[in-house]
Design a protein around this nucleic acid. Structure first.
Length: 585
RNA sequence: GUGCCCGUAGCUCAGCUGGAUAGAGCAGGUGCCUUCUAAGCAUCAGGUCGGGGGUUCGAAUCCCUCCGGGCACGCCA
């Protein structure tokens, strides 16, 4: 399906043959041989570095080897021009026919065009969002949510068996504080003046609803009672309502996790002890004394023996404590158990999408996963940098502590899911991102959401117009796949077709790099190419899509147009963005 | 102090895991609407890829070092 891969296979066959006949040494390593589009398309359609990569081991100069290889490439089907250029690139072109089959492929595969088998059905677990259930989702979570979900779709498209997972941090101090904060709101709901929310409590107003709900359900039943009685009730109610809100926000973003894992459940299942034992059995646990952190010694630092995990054996900077002084597990210990659990459920490749503030955590969890899986699993931690929100250039402040922050819900209400999803994927995740509420809904060329949607809508506009011009014409994919694509021989048309043919390659590369934002850039490129062709039809009538007196050509062009729309839709599907067929109305 | 990320055109960013003459958009100059959406297109101009070393056929990309910006660091979660 990936046309570049196809030709790479052919070239590998040639090279293998050459090594059998003695033109190349036996048993050569061909893994570094690539077939790619050259940066400058005037060099050719495809380019291989084989001659340069192999010249040393072959003991020949690259140009010479390139000439020999070029002779063989000439004999491949569909290949027209072969040249050796620069330091030893072998460039070649394919005839129009070889490219034009792409249209039929797109039309028959529909939105699944670009699907790949490189994932080999390997199990991948992507953990994302995993926001603490102590408040509503914010802009920052939105980015992780979008990146994680698009990553999952991308890997699925590339043939991986993907599980989307959410880890609920429902154990430990934060949720204890949450429970107490809710109790305050409960008392408030029953008429008590609670005044200013003391520090050490969550001040957010959203907890009022929780307090009120408990008051409505239980009346004054918990007033004057001991914390041990009301706390579990308040905590449970808060968790339930917070998670319900989070899930509803995610649902409105079009995001659905397959698994919600509870930290408390992991603990209750005894997974922490078991995971600890796994490490202990490998001799990775010892009792030692850590030095205070450099440059920022905590006031209450005291040296004492601790139960440590030998994270340094796996590339971490220091060994990490697993038990607190009161003998309970650290958060890290719980997290090891959780990742071990994911591994036990069959995933050998784990991906964690985290906020940039978790930077210090990457090596640690990587070490733990290697250790606890016996080297059979790995974890790829993707850190998403901060999102700065603006409105017409004016910063929109957010501060979770103060309880005034931009929530995902705010964003959904203001600009909608598709815009959020698209914009969140316009930068690589380790680049900070600016989100301007005014700009992202602007209908202009510098708004990529609009630009790509416009291209898609224009395609459909042509299809609609065709129906008016030729009332009996069928413009569905099945009908159009009978079109004579050989009529699409102009350089402008072939440019579009070549770009579409490269889509499967982009999918594979984005998946391998685990970088969904690359999809966005590809779509902008394809949209630009389409807009360009559209406008050529203004200057040159023969390049218009529809010709009243030439139904055959119109039909072929419609096949091209529908292909473009389909590839755009295929990419938007990975991003989770709904393709629009009309922009105004 | 240590680790991670970033530094590419005036601005915002890509750069296909080491390839050829480093690319887009915005902003600036010049053109294109009696014709499928001008919400668009074409074209010009704009660069010491933060600096300096190294690795090799070949470096924005890999290594070292320095400079500048961001995020982290603990028995928190």
């Amino acid at each position: 399906m990936n046309i570049f891969q196809e030709y790479r296979n052919h070239i590998v066959d040639i090279l293998t043959h050459m090594s059998q006949t003695g033109d190349l040494p036996a048993g050569i390593d061909l893994t570094r041989v690539t077939v790619e589009p050259p940066r400058d398309s005037s060099h050719g359609d495809m380019s291989t570095n084989a001659a340069m990569v192999l010249s040393k081991i072959a003991g020949k100069n690259p140009r010479q080897l390139g000439e020999a290889l070029a002779e063989k490439i000439k004999t491949l089907e569909g290949v027209t021009e072969v040249t050796v250029a620069g330091p030893g690139f072998v460039n070649f072109r394919l005839d129009a026919g070889a490219w034009l089959v792409t249209i039929r492929n797109v039309l028959s595969s529909g939105i699944h065009f670009g699907n790949s088998g490189i994932g080999q059905n390997k199990k991948v677990n992507i953990e994302f969002v995993s926001a603490n259930p102590t408040g509503p989702l914010t802009v920052g979570h939105a980015r992780g949510a979008v990146v994680g979900d698009a990553m999952a779709s991308l890997l699925q498209k590339a043939g991986f068996d993907v599980t989307r997972e959410y880890y609920i941090n429902d154990a430990g101090n934060q949720v204890n504080i949450l429970g107490r904060s809710v109790y305050l709101r409960y008392r408030e709901a029953l008429g008590e003046q609670i005044g200013e929310i003391p520090s050490g409590f969550y001040p957010g107003e959203y907890l009022k609803d929780v307090g009120a709900a408990i008051a409505k359900r239980d009346g004054d039943k918990w007033l004057g009672k001991d914390e041990s009685e009301w706390h579990p009730v308040c905590k449970a109610a808060a968790l339930e309502m917070m998670m319900a809100e989070i899930k509803s926000d995610l649902a409105d973003m079009g995001i659905h996790h397959d698994v919600f894992s509870s930290e408390q459940a992991v603990i209750d299942a005894g997974a922490v002890d078991k995971a600890f034992k796994v490490l202990e059995d490998q001799g990775l646990i010892y009792t030692g004394v850590l030095e205070p952190p450099k440059g920022k010694t905590p006031d209450d630092w005291e040296e004492r023996p601790q139960t440590l995990f030998k994270a340094t054996a796996f590339g971490d900077d220091v060994d990490r404590p697993l038990k607190k002084s009161d003998g309970t597990w650290t958060y890290f210990a719980n997290d090891i158990a959780y990742h071990w659990d994911k591994f036990n459920r069959g995933a050998t490749h784990l991906i964690d999408i985290l906020g940039a503030d978790h930077g210090g955590y990457v090596k640690r969890i990587g070490a733990a996963v290697k250790a606890v899986s016996g080297g059979k699993a790995d974890v790829d931690v993707k850190l998403c940098q901060i999102v700065h929100t603006f409105d017409n250039g004016e910063p929109v402040r957010m501060s979770k502590r103060a309880g005034t922050f931009v929530t995902l819900r705010d964003m959904l209400d203001k600009v909608g899911k598709d815009v959020i999803r698209f914009i969140m994927l316009t930068r690589s995740s380790d680049q900070t991102l600016e989100f301007d509420f005014a700009k992202v809904v602007e209908q202009s060329k510098d708004n990529p959401v609009f630009y790509v949607q416009y291209a898609h809508a224009r395609c459909h506009s042509v299809l609609r117009n065709a129906k008016e011009m030729f009332p009996t014409i069928e413009t569905d994919a099945v009908a159009l796949s009978t079109a004579n694509v050989n009529l699409l021989a102009s350089e402008d048309e072939l440019k579009l077709v070549r770009l579409m043919a490269a889509w499967p390659r982009h999918v594979e590369q984005a998946a391998e790099a685990a970088e969904p934002h690359r999809i966005t850039f590809y779509l902008q490129e394809l949209a630009a190419e389409f807009h360009a062709f559209w406008n050529k039809g203004r200057d040159d009538n023969t390049l218009r899509f529809l010709h009243e007196n030439d139904r055959g050509l119109s039909f072929s062009r419609l096949a091209l147009v529908r292909s473009v729309a389909t590839v755009l839709a295929s990419g938007l599907a990975v991003m989770g963005v709904t393709p629009l067929e009309e922009l105004h109305g």
